[in-house]
Simulated scan of single mutants.
Amino acid sequence: MNLQTLTERAANSEVRELELLSLEGGFYLARIRLDQGQFTLLDDAAKPMHLRSITHLRDLLQTVPAFPCVLVQQCVHDEMCGRDSGPVEELRIPFSLTAPL
Rank of each mutant, 00 (worst) to 15 (best):
R83W: 11
P87L: 15
G26V: 01
L42Q: 11
L29R: 14
L6F: 10
L61K: 04
G26M: 01
A46S: 15
Q62N: 12
L3G: 02
L41D: 06
L97G: 08
L6R: 07
L18D: 01
V88Q: 13
P48L: 00
S22R: 13
P87I: 14
H56Y: 13
F95Q: 07
L34N: 07
I93N: 11
C81Q: 14
G37Q: 10
E8I: 06
P65K: 02
T5P: 01
S85T: 11
L3S: 05
P94K: 05
C81H: 15
Q36V: 09
T55S: 13
Q4S: 11
L21Y: 03
L42K: 14
R31S: 10
P100C: 01
P65G: 10
K47H: 06
D43E: 08
R92L: 08
H56A: 14
L97R: 09
V70G: 05
T55P: 00
Q73F: 04
T63M: 03
P48M: 05
Q74T: 14
P100G: 05
H50P: 04
V76Q: 13
E89G: 01
N12C: 10
L18F: 00
C69G: 09
F95N: 11
E8N: 12
Y28S: 00
D59K: 10
V76E: 13
Y28L: 10
V76C: 06
Q74E: 11
L18T: 01
E89V: 10
P87G: 15
L18C: 08
G86H: 04
L51H: 10
P68L: 06
R31F: 06
P94G: 03
L34K: 03
L29H: 14
E17R: 12
Q38G: 08
S96V: 02
L42Y: 06
S53A: 04
